[in-house]
Amino acid sequence: MIADIDITLFEAANQIAGRSFTLDALMALAMENPLVKGGPIAACFLFAWWYRADAETLAKRRATLLLTLAALFLIAPVMKLVSSQGGLSPRPLVQSERTIVLESGALRPLSQVAYTAPETGLAAGLTRGAKGGTVAPNDLASFPSDHAALFAAFAAGIFLAMRTAGLVALGWGVFGIMLPRVATGMHWPSDMAAGALAGLAVLAAVLLAGRTVLVGPVAAVQVWAEKCPGWTQALLFLLLAEVASAMGTLQRLAELASGILGR
């Protein structure tokens, strides 16, 4: 039932792919370029951080934003753990071929989906690979979506801090980040829903901690930020750039560290 709804929603979203090179190129840009992908949401964060308000409102808002930022850096390891618990979930672009998975010792054919590949971008390359007999392990683990987890939590945190900036961030999260990933066959709608749910759960846990056990540390960071606006701005820039790239640098560093330690 859920799988049928997933396929129906996917096939509907995929209608926009492969029809216009310009649209495909724009979707590829939104999916692959860190500035376009996460930049608008990072800009919303900074807007909310600096937008004038009375001292009490500003303090509450910045506390929420700080906790949101902290939650984002917890999401990547949590998602790694979550995805390691699930079975294989081929991307839609893989499932456009006849795919059979091993489940409880028996082979089960998956529904073959009608799929139109975009003309350009990562999904176009992966589709060519899948048609030619190359499927990377990552293309069998689409569930849940890391991007949906990260950017849903990012946008929701901004929304909780400041409604207007949050609405813009949520809008970009849905139409600029999630929709292209579904439309181009990188993810199923359920990957997005589960990812967003996981991200929101982490955010909620961190916000709850921020109002209980982390009240002191959050207040201390805010006092330091008031005293050192230059350092604060520089650090925010670096952290937000990292989030906008979906933690690309940290993942690379983790791979390097694991490679060095494994030698």
């Binding site: 699930g86 082979l107 996981a198």
Partner: peptide, 15 residues
Amino acid sequence: AACGGRGDEAAIVLY
């Protein structure tokens, strides 16, 4: 609940 397995750890793509 959303992390429930959707498959096992092997697959075949039949062309």
